[in-house]
Design a protein around this nucleic acid. Structure first.
Length: 433
DNA sequence: TCTGCTAACACTTTTGAAGTGG
DNA sequence: ACCACTTCAAAAGTGTTAGCAG
């Protein structure tokens, strides 16, 4: 494993990010905010996806200086987003959170996400609508999760409170939407769901799930990268987004009973725990009593469900029951083919190895280029539009989606040196401890 | 004793193979 | 032979809970 500072020594201090600005998150002490540094956000992180080859591809030879670190996540933006930079890279691109209301409801209580050794899905999942993409160009859609602050949290019976410093930063991993790469038309056709993302607290996780510390506050980020293929050293622009209402605290067991209630009410897989479900507290207690008395009689009556509406696997359809997609349209492959087609056409892009391997080099001429110092790019900060695309100038910009090079790929957690769409990418920049 | 984590559990939904009919 | 549809079992995703470790 390499650290970017070792590989990119020449970049030196230009990649230093300034500390977060005061005035941050509600409930987050300024002292902790002041003391925290996004020490790893300068990791060249997404370079791998910057593939080629847009109409006017350009090699990443002269990295512009990274923008200063934005204010602490969740806080008020004291420095407005750099719209000009954003438009220079991916002009006009905007995202809106489809399930904004649900997220808002959870956020008002204090969202908690279960993390397990085996990996647990996020609920609610990030489901967004995209506009402003070039319908013909191809894009990668990525999701990662970054710490909101430098604190560890503790449930104090009624609310979350910081209790000490955060654990050391874990390996940064990126979830690649399974449809990637796809055309702008594809991404804009219907809401894009990231419901398959899994969170784990297993630092040795072999499945490539996003690794988090328990009792820490995190913020999901979405990245759109204009690129024709998964891995290249060329790029056509990138835009990063975050929605403050999607921040959450990772836990191994729910702390706030109100969150539990919300999850049970909204998640179809937890239907059994609802008031009328067989797994609700009343039924469970009764079952335990019956068990103590003797064998439980077989219940023949079918459990009345709420009808269909569970998470849908398709990107093109809704992923959440409370937002049943009205679209029954059969997904059509994006221009140039679906991810599966892309796989068939260019298997080396998905199963390929670092550019030194012949399989990839044969399929992707750009991989045969000499491995000069990978360059970084400047990620735009965009204002977010919560729900239905309604603009909200109060939304702070996302932290920069820093670039990274294939060097940072960790083969370990992945069966493949390059992750397939739908997989995860380990972009750890430094050893765990 | 307290806090946090894990594994087992019962339940539901999703998925995909197998079967059926046009 | 092909396609669309249905059925069904297995897999996967839920929160709960008891027990364990530090």
């Amino acid at each position: 494993m390499y650290h970017p500072r070792e590989l990119y020594a020449p970049l030196g201090a230009s990649y230093r990010l300034r500390p977060p600005q005061p005035g941050g998150d509600i409930g987050f002490p300024a002292s902790l905010s002041e003391g925290y540094r996004y020490s790893d956000l300068d990791t060249p992180k997404l370079d791998c996806f910057l593939s080629g080859l847009e109409a006017t591809p350009r090699p990443l030879a002269a990295p512009p200086p990274l923008p200063p670190l934005p204010p602490p996540l969740g806080g008020e933006s004291t420095a407005p987003a750099s719209a000009s930079e954003a438009s220079r890279l991916l002009p006009g691109v905007s995202l809106s959170l489809e399930n904004h209301d649900l997220w808002k409801e959870f956020n008002s209580v204090g969202t908690e996400m279960i993390i397990t050794k085996a990996g647990r899905r996020m609920f609610p999942a990030c489901r967004v609508s995209v506009t402003g993409l070039d319908p013909e160009a191809r894009y990668l859609f990525l999701l990662d999760v970054v710490p909101v602050d430098g604190a560890r949290y503790r449930w104090q019976g009624r609310r979350w409170e910081p209790s000490g410093k955060a654990e050391p930063r874990l390996p940064d991993r990126v979830y690649i939407h399974p449809d990637s790469p796809a055309t702008g038309a594809h991404w804009m056709r219907q809401p894009v769901s990231f419901h398959r993302v899994k969170l784990t607290n297993n630092t040795l996780d072999p499945h490539g799930h996003l690794i988090l510390h328990s009792m820490h506050k995190y913020q999901p980020r979405l990245h759109l990268v204009r690129a024709a293929q998964l891995c290249s050293r060329h790029w056509g622009g990138v835009a990063s987004f975050r929605f403050p209402e999607t921040s959450f605290i990772s836990v191994t067991a729910y702390q706030n009973p109100r969150i539990t209630q919300l999850k049970i009410a909204a998640n179809p897989f937890a239907k059994g725990f609802r008031e009328n479900g067989r797994n609700c507290k009343r039924e469970r207690d009764a079952r335990v009593k019956r068990k103590l008395r003797g064998p439980e009689p077989v219940i023949v009556e079918a459990y009345g469900g709420d009808g269909p509406g569970g998470p849908c696997d398709s990107t093109l359809a809704g992923d959440l029951p409370e937002q049943a997609s009205s679209s029954t349209e059969v997904p059509t492959p994006p221009c140039g083919g679906s991810s599966a087609e892309a796989y068939l056409l260019h298997p080396a892009a998905f199963h390929g190895a670092p550019s030194s391997l012949p399989t990839r080099a044969s399929s992707f001429p750009e991989a045969a280029e000499p491995l000069s110092r990978p360059s970084s790019y400047q990620a735009p900060f965009l204002e977010l539009s919560p729900g239905n695309g309604v603009s909200s100038p109060g939304y702070p910009p996302a932290p920069p989606a820093s670039a990274f090079a294939p060097h940072f790929l960790q083969g370990g957690p992945f069966p493949l040196p390059y992750p397939a769409p739908g997989g995860y990418l380990d972009v750890s920049s430094k050893p765990l401890y």
